[in-house]
Write a protein that binds this DNA or RNA. Structure first.
Lengths: 257, 257
DNA sequence: TAGTGGTCTAGACCACCAA
DNA sequence: TGGTGGTCTAGACCACTAC
């Protein structure tokens, strides 16, 4: 379906205000919001939009780019530009220490991991800090892209002391399962979340546009003894994940117990 | 300071691989990482970079734009392009129900709120769902930009049943203080976090580039009685905030206690 | 007033995909 | 092979800032 009439009133003399690329962007977005363009529908070729609106192709591309960035459109070279399919957002509790594999299994999703790296190497200064190691210590480094039902959802880069995980190749689908087999499953973790624009390389791994918003999560996990188990830096697709947290009013002053 | 020699090896015949705008972007980023360009330093004008590298200004702008998006550069029209100042990241606990004002006061920050809107209006369908209202019910709508030490950090859009807050104009610096004065301070809340690219309007309110990553937080707060107090949708600057959460292994099935 | 970033154009070539 | 998006250019005008 190629909606007609969406591109009226964009021309320099037309109504609306502000830069032309913003006006065109709003017009396309309105067409999606109103349902005149539905998920999977194709937009006309950039050259045709340019012709119809009287704009240059550069300007059309600038308008489209902003919508690609915000995840409303998808572009495929050699194929076309399409309205992005409705993305089902996955919700994850922020207070329970679960593993990705178990989490997805509970939802009935087919999990797949694409390995980026699985090796033993020296710890970086940041990792030494997090894991409490020295410059001579080595770490098991595990990096993978997590998929659920074929959709890449997250990049996970974990480092563990070799004392905890001597052989990273032993990790199959679930890191926590491998740890549990050794009796070293963490029972507590501290996480830090922030939002970031995905760099080109990470964006490619997650099949989103460079610069798309992602959730960066750093997690340090501990055994009951207080020993550090893992230091994991993950990048989640911003359009695919919701993290849920429950807050309680605490009158106690902050500080170590 | 205007570093020289940063722009070598960018020309079409030069080394490196991939699109020219990516090569130039990497070169500038490397100059920042290596310290040859420090916070506050200015880049040469776009036209000069174009001249030195043999690229067109459009290509130079594309390279610079990606760094502006990721927050490494700041552009000021009529003035120039500068390396972004180091941003101090604020950390906030995700398990404690605190108010922005109190949180910042505890850190010794000067808090300021810029009001966007303060009104009584009908509830939208989404707000009816969240607050448990009907189509006839009205809500107090409070929208403001939160600043700490002069830096815009978050956009906060709260709606409350008029039964809870009959007069939104009574809210001064702190919403929670106003509620506490009426004996209606929430003691529990459920939050959902996700990452998103900030739309142009929101980005402008937060003084970041359009498309920059932001953290979207939806919060529904409750009284001890279970009555809903507020439904708040906030957008936090991705470059300014870290949210911290502690996770525990829970073997119990999920559900209400 | 001079210089900066912001917008816009017309046209070109390349890489990729589908028929 | 024809059409699509991806990259790139040279040049123009505007809006704003600093002086």
């Amino acid at each position: 379906m190629t909606a007609t009439g969406i591109f009226d009133g964009i021309a320099p003399a037309g109504p609306g205000s502000g830069p032309l690329y913003l006006r065109l962007g709003r017009a396309i977005e309105a067409a999606i919001d109103s349902g005149r363009l539905g998920p999977g529908d194709s937009l006309p070729p950039e050259r045709e939009i340019a012709g119809r609106t009287g704009l240059s192709r550069v300007t059309v591309r600038k308008a489209v780019q902003s919508l690609v960035l915000s995840g409303r459109l998808v572009q495929r070279r050699g194929s076309g530009t399409f309205v992005a399919p409705r993305m089902e957002r996955l919700e994850q509790a922020l207070s329970r220490l679960t593993s990705f594999s178990e989490d997805m299994a509970r939802r009935g999703k087919a999990v797949r991991s694409v390995w980026i790296s699985r090796q033993i190497r020296l710890a970086t200064p940041e990792e030494m800090m997090a894991l409490g190691l020295t410059a001579e210590d080595r770490v098991a480094n595990i990096e993978r892209v997590r998929h659920a039902d074929g959709v890449p959802l997250a990049i996970e880069r974990a480092v563990l002391p070799t004392a905890i995980l001597p052989d990273p190749a032993a990790v199959d689908a679930s890191l926590y399962a491998a740890l549990a087999a050794r009796g070293l499953r963490p029972c507590r973790a501290v996480q830090r979340l922030s939002a970031t624009n995905l760099a080109a390389a990470d964006a490619a791994l997650l099949a989103v546009a460079p610069g798309a918003a992602g959730l960066r999560i750093e997690r340090i996990s501990y055994l009951a003894s207080g020993r550090v188990v893992e230091f994991t830096r993950s990048l989640y697709r911003g359009d695919a994940y919701d993290f849920a947290a429950e807050l309680r009013l605490s009158d106690e002053p902050e500080g170590e117990p």
